[in-house]
Design a protein around this nucleic acid. Structure first.
Length: 287
DNA sequence: TATTCGTGGTG
DNA sequence: TCACCAAGAAT
Protein backbone atom coordinates (compact mmCIF):
# COMPACT_ATOMS: atom_id res chain seq x y z
CA UNK A 1 0.00 0.00 0.00
CA UNK A 2 1.30 3.40 -0.97
CA UNK A 3 0.17 6.98 -0.61
CA UNK A 4 -1.33 6.55 -4.08
CA UNK A 5 -3.59 3.83 -2.73
CA UNK A 6 -4.54 5.73 0.40
CA UNK A 7 -5.26 8.84 -1.63
CA UNK A 8 -7.54 7.10 -4.07
CA UNK A 9 -9.27 4.92 -1.46
CA UNK A 10 -9.98 8.03 0.62
CA UNK A 11 -11.34 9.79 -2.44
CA UNK A 12 -13.59 6.84 -3.21
CA UNK A 13 -14.91 6.78 0.33
CA UNK A 14 -15.97 10.41 -0.03
CA UNK A 15 -17.22 10.43 -3.62
CA UNK A 16 -18.58 7.00 -4.48
CA UNK A 17 -22.04 6.86 -5.99
CA UNK A 18 -24.74 5.02 -4.11
CA UNK A 19 -25.59 2.53 -6.86
CA UNK A 20 -28.06 -0.24 -5.96
CA UNK A 21 -25.80 -3.06 -7.12
CA UNK A 22 -23.09 -1.79 -4.77
CA UNK A 23 -25.23 -1.95 -1.66
CA UNK A 24 -24.55 -4.68 0.90
CA UNK A 25 -27.93 -6.28 0.27
CA UNK A 26 -27.27 -6.65 -3.46
CA UNK A 27 -26.99 -10.29 -4.50
CA UNK A 28 -24.31 -11.75 -6.75
CA UNK A 29 -27.07 -12.16 -9.30
CA UNK A 30 -27.81 -8.46 -9.02
CA UNK A 31 -24.14 -7.68 -9.58
CA UNK A 32 -23.97 -9.98 -12.59
CA UNK A 33 -27.10 -8.42 -14.11
CA UNK A 34 -25.65 -4.94 -13.59
CA UNK A 35 -22.38 -5.87 -15.27
CA UNK A 36 -24.11 -7.26 -18.35
CA UNK A 37 -26.31 -4.19 -18.60
CA UNK A 38 -23.41 -1.79 -18.09
CA UNK A 39 -21.41 -3.21 -20.99
CA UNK A 40 -21.28 -0.16 -23.26
CA UNK A 41 -24.35 1.40 -21.64
CA UNK A 42 -24.42 4.42 -19.27
CA UNK A 43 -25.39 4.00 -15.61
CA UNK A 44 -28.32 6.41 -15.86
CA UNK A 45 -30.07 4.27 -18.44
CA UNK A 46 -29.32 1.00 -16.65
CA UNK A 47 -30.74 2.01 -13.26
CA UNK A 48 -34.52 1.75 -13.94
CA UNK A 49 -34.17 -1.40 -16.06
CA UNK A 50 -32.00 -3.08 -13.42
CA UNK A 51 -34.56 -2.30 -10.69
CA UNK A 52 -37.43 -3.73 -12.72
CA UNK A 53 -35.37 -6.76 -13.75
CA UNK A 54 -34.42 -7.72 -10.19
CA UNK A 55 -37.97 -7.13 -9.01
CA UNK A 56 -39.31 -9.49 -11.64
CA UNK A 57 -36.47 -12.02 -11.62
CA UNK A 58 -34.81 -11.93 -8.18
CA UNK A 59 -32.92 -15.17 -8.88
CA UNK A 60 -31.34 -16.82 -11.93
CA UNK A 61 -33.87 -19.64 -11.69
CA UNK A 62 -36.77 -17.24 -12.02
CA UNK A 63 -35.36 -15.81 -15.24
CA UNK A 64 -34.41 -19.26 -16.53
CA UNK A 65 -38.05 -20.31 -16.19
CA UNK A 66 -39.12 -17.61 -18.66
CA UNK A 67 -38.74 -17.53 -22.41
CA UNK A 68 -35.71 -15.68 -23.74
CA UNK A 69 -38.12 -13.37 -25.57
CA UNK A 70 -39.36 -11.99 -22.27
CA UNK A 71 -35.77 -11.09 -21.41
CA UNK A 72 -35.42 -9.30 -24.75
CA UNK A 73 -38.67 -7.43 -24.09
CA UNK A 74 -37.65 -6.43 -20.56
CA UNK A 75 -34.27 -5.31 -21.88
CA UNK A 76 -36.16 -2.45 -23.50
CA UNK A 77 -33.99 0.12 -25.19
CA UNK A 78 -30.70 -0.54 -23.43
CA UNK A 79 -29.14 -1.46 -26.76
CA UNK A 80 -27.15 -4.48 -27.94
CA UNK A 81 -30.11 -6.80 -27.26
CA UNK A 82 -27.99 -9.91 -27.78
CA UNK A 83 -26.87 -9.18 -24.22
CA UNK A 84 -30.43 -9.94 -23.06
CA UNK A 85 -30.22 -13.30 -24.79
CA UNK A 86 -26.86 -13.98 -23.19
CA UNK A 87 -28.09 -12.99 -19.75
CA UNK A 88 -31.01 -15.37 -20.13
CA UNK A 89 -28.66 -18.11 -21.28
CA UNK A 90 -26.40 -17.36 -18.32
CA UNK A 91 -29.39 -17.75 -15.98
CA UNK A 92 -30.16 -21.13 -17.54
CA UNK A 93 -26.52 -22.22 -17.19
CA UNK A 94 -26.38 -21.07 -13.57
CA UNK A 95 -29.59 -22.96 -12.81
CA UNK A 96 -28.47 -26.13 -14.54
CA UNK A 97 -24.77 -26.22 -13.74
CA UNK A 98 -24.49 -24.33 -10.45
CA UNK A 99 -27.66 -25.17 -8.57
CA UNK A 100 -29.07 -21.72 -9.14
CA UNK A 101 -26.21 -19.93 -7.37
CA UNK A 102 -23.97 -17.50 -9.26
CA UNK A 103 -20.54 -19.16 -9.16
CA UNK A 104 -17.79 -17.35 -7.27
CA UNK A 105 -15.04 -18.93 -9.33
CA UNK A 106 -13.47 -16.79 -12.04
CA UNK A 107 -13.20 -19.65 -14.54
CA UNK A 108 -16.80 -20.70 -13.96
CA UNK A 109 -17.96 -17.13 -14.41
CA UNK A 110 -15.91 -16.79 -17.59
CA UNK A 111 -17.67 -19.85 -19.00
CA UNK A 112 -21.07 -18.15 -18.75
CA UNK A 113 -22.60 -16.62 -21.89
CA UNK A 114 -21.95 -12.90 -22.15
CA UNK A 115 -19.21 -12.99 -19.53
CA UNK A 116 -15.75 -12.09 -20.78
CA UNK A 117 -12.53 -11.39 -18.92
CA UNK A 118 -13.65 -8.03 -17.56
CA UNK A 119 -17.08 -9.17 -16.36
CA UNK A 120 -15.75 -12.35 -14.74
CA UNK A 121 -13.18 -10.33 -12.81
CA UNK A 122 -15.73 -7.67 -11.90
CA UNK A 123 -18.27 -10.14 -10.49
CA UNK A 124 -15.63 -12.14 -8.62
CA UNK A 125 -14.29 -8.91 -7.17
CA UNK A 126 -17.43 -6.87 -6.49
CA UNK A 127 -19.83 -9.66 -5.53
CA UNK A 128 -17.41 -11.99 -3.77
CA UNK A 129 -14.63 -9.72 -2.54
CA UNK A 130 -11.89 -11.55 -4.40
CA UNK A 131 -8.59 -10.19 -5.65
CA UNK A 132 -8.63 -9.79 -9.44
CA UNK A 133 -7.28 -7.41 -12.05
CA UNK A 134 -10.40 -5.57 -13.18
CA UNK A 135 -9.43 -3.89 -16.41
CA UNK A 136 -12.25 -1.98 -18.02
CA UNK A 137 -12.04 1.09 -20.22
CA UNK A 138 -12.13 3.42 -17.20
CA UNK A 139 -9.31 1.67 -15.37
CA UNK A 140 -7.21 1.48 -18.51
CA UNK A 141 -7.63 5.21 -19.14
CA UNK A 142 -6.83 6.19 -15.55
CA UNK A 143 -3.68 4.08 -15.41
CA UNK A 144 -2.53 5.15 -18.87
CA UNK A 145 -2.78 8.79 -17.85
CA UNK A 146 -1.61 8.68 -14.25
CA UNK A 147 1.28 6.25 -14.82
CA UNK A 148 1.82 6.03 -18.57
CA UNK A 149 1.65 9.75 -19.29
CA UNK A 150 -0.55 9.30 -22.35
CA UNK A 151 -4.10 10.49 -23.01
CA UNK A 152 -5.64 7.20 -24.13
CA UNK A 153 -4.76 3.50 -23.96
CA UNK A 154 -4.59 1.34 -27.06
CA UNK A 155 -7.49 -0.52 -28.58
CA UNK A 156 -7.03 -3.65 -26.48
CA UNK A 157 -5.24 -4.41 -23.20
CA UNK A 158 -1.59 -5.41 -23.55
CA UNK A 159 0.51 -7.71 -21.41
CA UNK A 160 2.51 -4.85 -19.85
CA UNK A 161 -0.74 -3.06 -19.13
CA UNK A 162 -2.07 -6.07 -17.23
CA UNK A 163 1.20 -6.47 -15.38
CA UNK A 164 1.09 -2.83 -14.33
CA UNK A 165 -2.47 -3.20 -13.06
CA UNK A 166 -1.60 -6.41 -11.24
CA UNK A 167 1.39 -4.80 -9.56
CA UNK A 168 -0.87 -2.07 -8.19
CA UNK A 169 -3.42 -4.49 -6.74
CA UNK A 170 -3.37 -4.52 -2.93
CA UNK A 171 -2.57 -7.91 -1.35
CA UNK A 172 -5.63 -8.04 0.86
CA UNK A 173 -8.60 -9.32 -1.21
CA UNK A 174 -11.20 -7.01 0.31
CA UNK A 175 -8.94 -3.99 -0.18
CA UNK A 176 -8.14 -5.12 -3.72
CA UNK A 177 -11.85 -5.28 -4.52
CA UNK A 178 -12.39 -1.76 -3.20
CA UNK A 179 -9.32 -0.54 -5.08
CA UNK A 180 -10.70 -1.96 -8.32
CA UNK A 181 -14.04 -0.21 -8.00
CA UNK A 182 -12.34 2.98 -6.80
CA UNK A 183 -10.16 3.25 -9.91
CA UNK A 184 -13.20 2.59 -12.08
CA UNK A 185 -15.16 5.25 -10.25
CA UNK A 186 -12.39 7.79 -10.74
CA UNK A 187 -12.44 7.10 -14.46
CA UNK A 188 -16.21 7.40 -14.60
CA UNK A 189 -16.52 10.60 -12.58
CA UNK A 190 -13.23 12.53 -12.86
CA UNK A 191 -10.73 11.08 -15.33
CA UNK A 192 -13.29 11.02 -18.13
CA UNK A 193 -12.50 10.47 -21.78
CA UNK A 194 -13.22 13.94 -23.09
CA UNK A 195 -13.04 16.63 -20.44
CA UNK A 196 -11.29 15.27 -17.38
CA UNK A 197 -11.90 17.19 -14.17
CA UNK A 198 -8.26 17.34 -13.19
CA UNK A 199 -8.90 20.06 -10.60
CA UNK A 200 -11.01 17.52 -8.70
CA UNK A 201 -8.62 14.61 -9.15
CA UNK A 202 -6.88 13.16 -6.09
CA UNK A 203 -4.04 11.99 -8.32
CA UNK A 204 -3.36 15.32 -10.05
CA UNK A 205 -0.22 15.86 -7.99
CA UNK A 206 1.46 12.76 -9.40
CA UNK A 207 -0.30 12.30 -12.75
CA UNK A 208 2.29 11.82 -15.49
CA UNK A 209 -0.08 12.91 -18.25
CA UNK A 210 -0.68 16.17 -16.40
CA UNK A 211 3.00 16.82 -15.68
CA UNK A 212 3.75 16.16 -19.35
CA UNK A 213 1.37 18.92 -20.37
CA UNK A 214 -1.59 16.78 -21.50
CA UNK A 215 -0.12 15.55 -24.80
CA UNK A 216 -2.60 14.32 -27.44
CA UNK A 217 -5.58 15.45 -25.42
CA UNK A 218 -7.63 15.76 -28.58
CA UNK A 219 -6.57 12.46 -30.04
CA UNK A 220 -8.97 11.55 -32.84
CA UNK A 221 -11.19 8.70 -31.87
CA UNK A 222 -13.05 6.32 -34.08
CA UNK A 223 -16.49 7.67 -34.93
CA UNK A 224 -19.27 5.19 -35.31
CA UNK A 225 -21.91 6.12 -37.83
CA UNK A 226 -25.40 4.92 -37.08
CA UNK A 227 -28.00 6.47 -39.37
CA UNK A 228 -28.85 4.10 -42.16
CA UNK A 229 -26.86 1.17 -40.80
CA UNK A 230 -28.00 -2.41 -40.38
CA UNK A 231 -27.77 -1.77 -36.66
CA UNK A 232 -30.37 0.95 -36.82
CA UNK A 233 -32.54 -1.20 -39.04
CA UNK A 234 -32.32 -4.15 -36.61
CA UNK A 235 -33.24 -1.79 -33.79
CA UNK A 236 -36.34 -0.57 -35.61
CA UNK A 237 -37.50 -4.08 -36.43
CA UNK A 238 -36.94 -5.35 -32.90
CA UNK A 239 -38.75 -2.34 -31.42
CA UNK A 240 -41.89 -3.34 -33.36
CA UNK A 241 -41.72 -6.84 -31.90
CA UNK A 242 -41.00 -5.61 -28.36
CA UNK A 243 -44.04 -3.39 -28.46
CA UNK A 244 -46.33 -6.14 -29.75
CA UNK A 245 -47.70 -8.70 -27.27
CA UNK A 246 -47.80 -11.59 -29.73
CA UNK A 247 -46.59 -12.15 -33.26
CA UNK A 248 -46.74 -9.60 -36.06
CA UNK A 249 -47.34 -9.97 -39.77
CA UNK A 250 -44.47 -9.33 -42.16
CA UNK A 251 -46.05 -6.15 -43.49
CA UNK A 252 -45.89 -4.64 -40.00
CA UNK A 253 -42.11 -4.94 -40.24
CA UNK A 254 -42.19 -3.43 -43.72
CA UNK A 255 -43.49 -0.18 -42.22
CA UNK A 256 -40.56 -0.03 -39.82
CA UNK A 257 -37.90 0.22 -42.56
CA UNK A 258 -38.50 1.25 -46.14
CA UNK A 259 -35.47 -0.18 -47.93
CA UNK A 260 -36.35 -3.83 -48.70
CA UNK A 261 -32.89 -5.30 -49.29
CA UNK A 262 -31.46 -3.96 -46.06
CA UNK A 263 -34.64 -4.85 -44.17
CA UNK A 264 -34.38 -8.43 -45.38
CA UNK A 265 -30.73 -8.63 -44.43
CA UNK A 266 -31.38 -7.18 -40.98
CA UNK A 267 -34.29 -9.54 -40.34
CA UNK A 268 -32.20 -12.51 -41.42
CA UNK A 269 -29.46 -11.50 -39.01
CA UNK A 270 -31.98 -11.11 -36.18
CA UNK A 271 -33.28 -14.60 -36.96
CA UNK A 272 -29.73 -15.94 -37.06
CA UNK A 273 -29.00 -14.33 -33.69
CA UNK A 274 -32.12 -15.87 -32.17
CA UNK A 275 -33.56 -12.48 -31.32
CA UNK A 276 -36.54 -13.12 -33.61
CA UNK A 277 -38.37 -16.29 -34.59
CA UNK A 278 -40.66 -17.03 -37.51
CA UNK A 279 -44.07 -18.26 -36.43
CA UNK A 280 -47.12 -19.51 -38.32
CA UNK A 281 -48.00 -18.13 -41.76
CA UNK A 282 -44.87 -16.06 -42.14
CA UNK A 283 -45.40 -14.04 -38.98
CA UNK A 284 -42.62 -12.99 -36.64
CA UNK A 285 -42.22 -12.78 -32.85
CA UNK A 286 -39.72 -12.60 -30.03
CA UNK A 287 -38.33 -16.04 -29.12
C1' DT B 1 -7.07 -8.96 -34.76
C1' DA B 2 -10.61 -6.15 -36.75
C1' DT B 3 -15.64 -6.02 -36.99
C1' DT B 4 -20.03 -6.19 -35.51
C1' DC B 5 -23.48 -5.45 -32.31
C1' DG B 6 -28.07 -0.15 -30.06
C1' DT B 7 -29.42 3.70 -27.93
C1' DG B 8 -30.15 8.30 -26.29
C1' DG B 9 -27.85 11.90 -23.39
C1' DT B 10 -24.80 15.85 -23.97
C1' DG B 11 -20.97 19.59 -24.35
C1' DT C 1 -26.50 21.48 -33.57
C1' DC C 2 -24.32 17.07 -33.98
C1' DA C 3 -20.20 14.52 -33.27
C1' DC C 4 -19.01 11.92 -29.48
C1' DC C 5 -19.68 8.74 -26.50
C1' DA C 6 -21.02 4.61 -22.16
C1' DA C 7 -18.58 -0.79 -16.62
C1' DG C 8 -17.34 -5.49 -23.61
C1' DA C 9 -18.16 -9.89 -25.77
C1' DA C 10 -18.21 -12.85 -29.58
C1' DT C 11 -16.51 -14.21 -33.80
Amino acid sequence: MTTLHDTLLDWYDDHRRDLPWRRPEASAWGVLVSELMLQQTPVARVLPVWEAWLERWPTPARLAAESSGEAVRAWGRLGYPRRALRLHAAAVAITERHGGEVPDDHAALLALPGVGDYTAAAVASFAFGQRHVVLDTNVRRVLERALGGRAFPGTSPTRPERDRAAALLPDDPATAATWAVAVMELGALVCTARRPRCEQCPLSGTCRWRSAGFPDAEAPRRVQTYDGTDRQCRGRLLAVLRDSPGSVAADRLDTAWAEPVQRRRALDSLLADGLVVRTERGRYALP
